[in-house]
Amino acid sequence: MSAPMLEMRGISKTFGAVTALSNVSLRLEAGSVLGLIGDNAAGKSTLMKILAGALRPDSGEILLDGAPVNFAHPIAARDAGIEMIYQDFALVPELTVTQNIFLGREITRSIAGLRVLDRSTMNARSEEMFAALGLRVPAVTLPVQALSGGQQQAVAIARATGFAARLVIMDEPTANLGAPAIARVRETITRLKNAGVAVIIISHRLEDIFAVGDRFMVMKQGHLVGDRNVDDTDNADLVEMIVTGVDARAARDPVADPT
């Protein structure tokens, strides 16, 4: 069997005396959509920040296509095609749409040996991104703080999907959004999946994952509790795992391989 696109093995992370993650492993195939669910402080965001290079694990390893990778830095993860859409979008309000999209990977040109920001190329590229995504903002040269919440989300989506992403992580993508914006997020996820991009969704809203996802993973207090296919589970089953932290099926049938 060929190696999965992404594998995280035995990831552990502590913050002082608090164990945020304890020996968590995860596998993900290209073009699959995984819902990562669990109560607050279950370790979902920490696990994803490690994957996105924003945090470093104490132990464990990450493999892409079977090859170990080491993300010392969010830029390293982004260069490997792993993008994250943060719950607050992680946009700088004073910077323009284009500046936010290219933040950390600006296009520069050389003038007399000086590296100068190539603003016109970046503006043109970000307009192309929005056109390709079917998303709209009033102008790519406007500061992000002049945009509505839905438009800011469009900027975050464009940034995460506009650079040949292989895996997009979404942290609570539908929290605090109206129905049209939620539909747009689901559309984006489906489009990414069809393009062979893997998606991990951290969400409290199970219905989003039932709608567009393939698999659930349930976490509680830094441990991986259970793993379900979308068509093989229901709300009650998942909620029970989230609350009790016990996989009832595995407990009933200990011989069964949970993967």
Binding site: A54, P74, A90, V92, P93, L95, Q99, E106, T108, R115
Partner: peptide, 22 residues
């Protein structure tokens, strides 16, 4: 016109966003 200036503004604008963008 340079990355450094842009990064200074990004740091002051929203430090956490600048941090997670690397």
């Amino acid at each position: 016109r340079t990355r450094f200036g842009l990064y200074a503004l990004a740091t002051g604008g929203r430090e956490e966003a600048a941090r997670v963008m690397g």
